[in-house]
Design a protein around this nucleic acid. Structure first.
Lengths: 131, 131
DNA sequence: TAGAGCGACTTGCATAATGAAAGTGACCGC
DNA sequence: GCGGTCACTTTCATTATGCAAGTCGCTCTA
């Protein structure tokens, strides 16, 4: 059970572009949707496919399915059935997934300061919308 | 000269997906290459097209040209000629561009802790490579 | 027992982005 | 002239994105 890292990624399963930590991170989460899905799982109590699909940005269902599958394979998200007949699933961040919170916070701070975006306070659940 | 934010983006020039700061940030820098270019400008003294092209990850020249153009338009990077005959350009982060450093640092920390990537210390210029 | 509906996807298909490779144009030194 | 450097462009095949519609299992109501 030799692993190259702390995730479920087996040796040789993922060929990173380089040894740079930033490049490796971007290989996994460097796109327009993945971190928004993680945001909703982290702070907005969205745990089902349906709920995640109804986020403000309206992620297309095929992209959402693809990203969730990927995140589960990578070990950032867990998927467990919460009922049978018909089977329905709940998604939740793993500890490794939750450890992305500082990345979300720094992106939020930058966007709030420079792009006029809203700011969300995870501790209170309140958000200040832009003027 | 009404602006919607602190960048050179005029009102209506950029239609963000949503008012979420994270979504807005990802609209600008949410891809596999942009933050690597910013990393090189920020920490690795790369300032010419040629130097940026020769980074470890080997960004394709058309992508590099596209991203630099975009970053200049957005006001994250400045472009100035440093010689005529023939004209040659130097790229450098603006203050807004430099303010992305915490984002790079948090991504680096996450990748270092979870993906076995190397860690770079901007203050000393030294990097610890993965085992 | 025949729909109607829900949740979680999947499929089809057109458009857009990516990336490898080669090409262009200004100039300089030999 | 001739080769080389730098800063890009262009071409074109491959891949990703995204809208819309469809599927599948099952339950609930008429």
């Amino acid at each position: 059970m030799s692993r190259v890292n702390h995730l479920d990624i087996p040796d040789d399963a993922y060929d990173f572009r380089s040894r740079c930590s930033i490049a490796r991170s971007l290989d996994l989460i460097g796109d327009k949707w993945t971190l928004l899905i993680i945001r909703d799982l982290m702070w907005h109590e969205k745990s089902t496919f349906q709920a995640l699909q109804r986020s403000e940005e309206r992620v297309p269902s095929n992209i959402l399915a693809n990203r969730l599958k990927r995140l589960v394979e990578l070990g950032l998200v867990g998927k467990t059935p919460y009922q049978d007949r018909p089977v329905r699933y709940r998604y939740a961040l793993t500890e490794v997934g939750r450890s992305l919170e500082p990345v979300l916070l720094s992106l939020m701070a930058w966007g709030h300061g420079n792009l006029g975006g809203g700011q969300y306070d995870p501790s209170t659940g309140e958000s200040k919308l832009p003027s």
